[in-house]
Design a protein around this nucleic acid. Structure first.
Lengths: 215, 215
DNA sequence: CCTACCGATCGGTAGG
DNA sequence: CCTACCGATCGGTAGG
């Protein structure tokens, strides 16, 4: 837009985005590709198109970049997935939309999902504990929301078991598996997970939970 | 055993094990805790109780330690989990034992499971591609074994859907979720996954797949 | 947002 | 399995 004369523009990402946004995007992508310990501040700076020292105007340390990415990822996930559980419809419909929202989020923002995993598993020491605590808080929130949801589904007589805790557990394990499988490189299926296939898979899963499942 | 006079014994792990075994154990534990990039050869050497340079008598590089851990992890997983699918019993019983074996493996060898994830997601560049290829080959083997298993279950009339591919997919997503959830730090449930609870959860899951599931 | 620089540590090698 | 050492790079700072 300004001038096309120089090619001193940043090597990747949207050059129109603010430096801060490009920093976050570059860090998320690199952490997801190489891991936290495998990514250097110089790597991030190169992708952003600035010198390494300039990154320290936005964050006091590499650790704080990870923590900010984690907070933003959790917020984005909740914003994208939580509403479906409270929307109108039967409990089956609402849970289906919740799953679909989670899968779409994973497809659209794989780096955000990667951050959760990085925070929970790749980091040692004090930073690791801080990050893990944040992830566990988020997972506990989700678990509680699902248990409340299933408690209402039990009341409504829409599920075949009366234990919301086990129902939530089964769903969470299944949803975690599907979402994780969508992450880059893990395409152990030769076909993409289309909305149609997700729906078929969901029907197979849900019919074990729905009250009086089909014969 | 030899003498208890010095405390120059290795700081952690079984001092009686061979240096090579302690090297593998230390590397697996540290990679799982801090990630591949977050673990240095000096870290490994310290835990083994030798100098860093001595590690190079066993492996020519840090990369080859990871690759050997990956090969061994895949073999151990297959040895622990694959036989259940071919054992006697109904297809439901065999799949249940397969799931239980996988969960037990994850509980007993969490570092081995972590290596799969590290190989698939934390590594960039040429090593990353080598490791990812190995993981994908293993996952494809497992997928094929499960699809063959479900094809026989369809023939036997023990499942409610005629599509082995979707049946295998649903099971794999669920099993991956359960196994992943057993990994260290991810205890987002306040209770351990006992055999009894796993069985209850399995029943909830399987009744959606079993032909003519309970009402 | 830059140049210049810090001490510490990285993976790996030489030579025994 | 050790001591001694290599050049490169690490996260981060000073000062502008």
């Amino acid at each position: 837009m300004t001038d096309a004369l120089t090619d001193s523009t940043p090597p990747t990402g949207d050059p129109a985005a603010s430096t801060h946004d490009r920093l976050l995007s570059a860090a998320a992508t690199l952490f997801a590709e190489r891991g936290y310990g495998g990514t250097s501040m110089a790597d991030i700076a190169e992708q952003v198109g600035v010198r390494k020292a300039s990154l320290y105007n936005y964050y006091p340390s590499k650790e704080e970049i990870l923590m900010d990415l984690l907070h933003r990822g959790i917020d984005a996930w909740a914003g994208a997935c939580a509403p479906a559980l409270e929307a109108p419809g039967t409990h089956g419909e609402r849970l289906w939309r919740h799953l679909r929202a989670a899968v779409r989020f994973a497809v659209d923002h794989p780096e955000a999902v990667s951050i959760f995993r990085i925070a929970a598993t790749q980091i040692g020491g004090e930073l690791g504990e801080r990050a893990m605590a944040e992830v566990n808080r988020h997972k506990a929130d989700h678990r509680r929301a699902l248990e409340a949801f299933f408690a209402r589904a039990v009341e409504a007589g829409e599920v075949r078991t009366a234990d919301p805790r086990e129902l939530a557990y089964v769903f969470r394990m299944f949803a975690n598996g599907v979402v994780t499988n969508q992450l880059g490189g893990c395409h152990d299926d030769d076909e993409v997970l289309s909305d149609e296939r997700l729906r078929r898979v969901w029907d197979l899963f849900w019919n074990g939970i729905a009250d009086g499942g089909a014969a």
